[in-house]
Design a protein around this nucleic acid. Sequence first.
DNA 1: CGTGTTTGACCCGCGC
DNA 2: GCGCGGGTCAAACACG
Length: 311
Amino acid sequence: MMMEKREEEMDVAAAAGVSPFAADQIGGIFDTAFDVRGADKSSQGFLELLGFQDLHRSFFDIPLPAPTVEVAPSVPPPESSEVLNFPATPNSSSISSSSTEAATDTADPAKPHREEEEQGKAKKTGSKEGKKKGQKRQREPRFAFKTKSEVDHLEDGYRWRKYGQKAVKNSPFPRSYYRCTHATCGVKKRVERSSEDRTVVVTTYEGQHNHPCPIVPRGGHPAPLPPLAAEPPPPPPGLGFVFPSFQVKDLHFPYLTSYLPPPLDFQHVSTGIVASAPGDRRLCNPTADVPIRDHGLLQDLIPSDIGKKEE
DNA sequence: CGTGTTTGACCCGCGC
DNA sequence: GCGCGGGTCAAACACG
């Protein structure tokens, strides 16, 4: 609701130990809601929350120029499970995650958003039954990512239908509302540009996918993953970024790994990471039964020294 | 024709 | 109670 963003920022700031406003300006700050403790609290991994419960593999793929991902050292998160990270360098993209109410709303990860959907419907019809009396409307866990990107809508492998756009107060850029097109999936996401840095796209996921990732371009077929041993193609001129969901240990991707189930006992605390990926890789894997196999995917995509580059 | 986008209206929650 | 702003709906429209 209104103030939501502010609340998120407040949470983030609290997590980072800085004021929301300061935090928003601090490049490279990456709070660790993706800390192991955070995972324990919610009993839900980051990927799970995004609907990747069955595939801890590749994560994001932004087939467009620009994107890089930077992860900064983290500060132990307080109660809040909402996190944001901020861009560290002009040439990098940052991702952040936030999950307001995540701590209290993760009891049933598999449960989609029917409740909220119906509440919305009831709301539309003017019925009061859509909302439980005396009870605040519950929200799905949310995760926000700040991504340095030229385009607003980042390709993540799922199909989204835009259902609204609103001007945002104190921001020259509108906020777009997307909903997963899968019939039984109520996952939503909001996409907006940062008013402070127009190159930063803030994507907020709400809810959890309860279906495999389609990875199907319109009218196309699911994009096959590269063969296990295949040499990953070189990144396109413009970089996309991919969230490694496995091999993260090697990739020093603390905030993700910490949300991954064992044995991905991520122990490293990275100082930064920049990931890129070819255009047709997707955030999720459509075939969950495919054994983990992209060993080296990101390793090949991510220069080994990048992880240390950010100081 | 199916799918996705645009856009104005509507509703709700919150702060005052 | 009122106004503001966020979030959603759904008709109209665009496109392949």
